[in-house]
Design a protein around this nucleic acid. Structure first.
Lengths: 146, 146
DNA sequence: TATTGTTATACTCTATAACTATA
DNA sequence: TATAGTTATAGAGTATAACAATA
């Protein structure tokens, strides 16, 4: 058993960030993984679907930048999504090297479902008092500039 | 960058949760990946180091539960951490099937450094007004029961 | 019989390097 | 020459199934 020392005082913003990380690790990550299992898609595939704009195809290079991985990985990820009929590659009008990525009708449906599921706030936040929920939103708006 | 759609009105807690997810995706994830690259460890290895208690070994089965992966994966992850001298397997006194996982001295040092780096709040939160920083902490304390 | 950790296998993700077809 | 995407390769993570040692 460790020696019972008093926890050192932390700046409010440091503690707030730690609590957000707890939320990520204990709530967001398990939900994220379970959602992938349920829909039978891997995490990078899930990120790809969520990132694609339903109304506007994006070049594969943009997806690589967004996944923060090498462009060579995108080939395989897109191959598998395409094999499942969720996305398709299209020619880019302005540059014949570029391939544009678009959601299929089924891909759009899956994406919408994923979005809806991830948008559900965790019980921890939903249980807050109404004033806290509004204050939390307002502070995060100011933080992120939205 | 978030997707700019014309947004229907959302409940405050739904919007707050969306903003937290933005923070995760745009801030936490890139930092997490960069930290792994800098220390030359993979994400599961990083999670393992952060999860291990410096003062108390844990059985491998607990780690598997915590990583939310099959026990067979833990063997390889621990093999690589052990090969780098960051963790070691020890016998469990009460059950000879169980192997306890302990940080080495170097593993403790690496873990402490990782903890310190991840504890730094992102610029978005650090830039908040002092009253907002305190309010954010207080609300998150109430949400998570800390 | 059940459980802990390992091994074997197959698939996916990952980076690096080399290639192609464009620009 | 430079860039977008692909291929080849090797290392790592993942689940499933089978196994040894132990309970």
């Amino acid at each position: 058993m460790p020696i019972a020392t008093k926890a050192p005082p932390r700046a409010p913003v440091v503690e707030a960030w730690a609590l957000i990380q707890d939320l990520i690790l204990n709530v967001q990550r398990p939900r994220w993984l379970a959602l992938g299992t349920e829909f039978e898609i891997t995490p990078p595939q899930l990120m790809t679907l969520r990132r694609l704009d339903p109304d506007q195809p994006s070049p594969m290079s943009e997806l690589a930048r967004w996944l923060a991985c090498d462009a060579s990985n995108v080939t395989g990820i897109v191959d598998r999504l395409e094999a499942r009929g969720l996305v398709e590659r299209r020619a880019a009008p302005h540059d014949r090297r570029v391939k544009m990525l678009a959601l299929t009708a089924e891909g759009r449906a899956v994406r919408d479902e994923l979005e809806a599921r991830m948008a559900e706030p965790p019980a921890e936040l939903a249980a807050l008092a109404p004033a806290d929920r509004r204050a939390l939103r307002d502070i995060l708006r100011r933080a992120t500039g939205h």
